[in-house]
Design a protein around this nucleic acid. Structure first.
Lengths: 253, 253
DNA sequence: AAGTGGTCTAGACCACTCA
DNA sequence: GAGTGGTCTAGACCACTTG
């Protein structure tokens, strides 16, 4: 059976071969990801059942299941007993806010309004290159935007996006979108992120955008989000007011 | 074969029965946890291979593997191809610091010295009961301690431990231990935690313990750590200085 | 009743570690 | 070379959802 899957993969130009040492279930997971990125499987769509998929990929049901379980753990799919397997819509409320860790006093994620202050494309600076693992002449997009809750500004973001992954960010509409929404639009699958939290005081331009006095104490959120493959996709510096009981929520194990 | 496992479990007083609907691999995982908690399997010890264990528990190798993989994901075991399966030592450096998310400028977890300022046992307050899900007359241990890095205090902790899980915390030696070390000593398996981060200013007693001026801005770390079964084990309020480039590290996906 | 994912079985062979 | 975990196969039956 193994040959069948590899012949199938080869016939579809997938990155596997008869001589690949990469475990089959990972190759199948990659093929699943490819179908989602390419749009062959669209958000919210039900995909074939695991028996049919196993036959199609030429692997055993057990291997197919292992690949599907992995894709579910990576938030590509959702499986529901008795119903089927569905492609996750990364632009839905549930997934779009998953990287947003600031909460209001009541414990809910804040779903505020965003205003884009500026967008421009440039060559990476040294510090950006370090965080995004880019080379000297690579291009990046810069976005400055401010989030408000009930009309009151609380978070200023300076976003840096790799132009390799996100070739065209021009409109204010694009720049106002959450990363997960842009990623789905550009066929990028997102994975882990890490965030460094410190205390700092607002420079005049930041303070002015947040409607507070210069030097006001803010929570500084320095975050990098990586693709599923581990490539840095976004570096964001957030400066957040912590009045009104707003706080950062971290979970770990 | 299924009967064999359940007869085995029954004969050992494990919480399963012929009529249990709980999946077998979860029952086996529970039995693994029980052997670790009871001390039958000691930290750093190699346990039998999966074929032998499957026979002993009366389940198929596939089910045994699923239970072992789960226990590894829960940080109870470590499996190494070609070597064997080992019980994790929760008091080792690697595991003891896993809930410590404050880092120094160089990105390393700070391995500082701790001084215990006070210990006492009391009945839960209302706010403690809320966070630790305890009833009105339950008992808790209070510990106040300060962490220093190269002799310089940087973190004051007010720890509240459920006395149900940790019956006797009397010595300063106990009170100075990290939670993971105490948990292993008391046969408690730890799981997830969550931490809320805000900015506040140090009250006089806190400021004095940290050798800074009263009112100094600190990072407020409000954390609850749960057992593997989801029972709150510890509530800790940390107040941390963020000079010298110290920061909180959050990871998510 | 039909279809789905979830659990479970009973093997086989491979990759890795170590004496 | 012996022993370990990692991968893979090819089924079976169960629990759940929906028409």
């Amino acid at each position: 059976m193994r040959e069948a899957s590899e012949i199938y993969a080869l016939s579809n130009g997938l990155p596997t071969s008869r001589f690949s040492n990469r475990p089959l279930y990972l190759q199948v997971r990659d093929a699943i990801a490819q179908r989602i990125v390419s749009g062959e499987w669209k958000p919210s769509m039900a995909i074939p059942n695991e028996t049919d998929l196993a036959r199609e990929f030429g692997v055993s049901p057990g291997t197919m299941r292992k690949a599907l379980d992995l894709a579910e753990a990576e938030r590509l799919l959702t499986r529901r007993q008795g119903r089927g397997t569905f492609v996750n819509d990364q632009s839905s409320q549930e997934y779009a806010v998953r990287y947003s860790n600031v909460r209001s006093r009541d414990g809910k994620r804040i779903d505020g309004e965003v205003e884009v202050l500026s967008i421009y494309e440039a060559t990476v600076s040294e510090s950006e290159g370090m965080r995004l693992r880019l080379r000297a002449r690579d291009r990046v997009h810069h976005i400055r935007r401010v989030w408000s809750d009930n009309g009151k500004p609380y978070l200023l973001e300076d976003v840096v996006l790799s132009a390799r992954l996100f070739p065209e960010i021009r409109s204010h509409d694009d720049a106002s979108q959450r990363l997960a929404v842009l990623a789905q639009k550009f066929g990028v699958l997102l994975g882990r992120g890490d965030e460094r939290i410190t205390i700092s005081s607002a420079e005049p331009d930041v303070a002015s955008a947040l409607h507070v006095a210069s030097g006001t104490t803010v929570m500084r959120l320095d975050r990098v989000i990586y693709t599923l493959q581990g490539v840095p996709a976004e570096w964001r510096l957030g400066q957040c007011l912590t009045d009104d009981g707003r706080y950062y929520m971290a979970q770990f194990s």
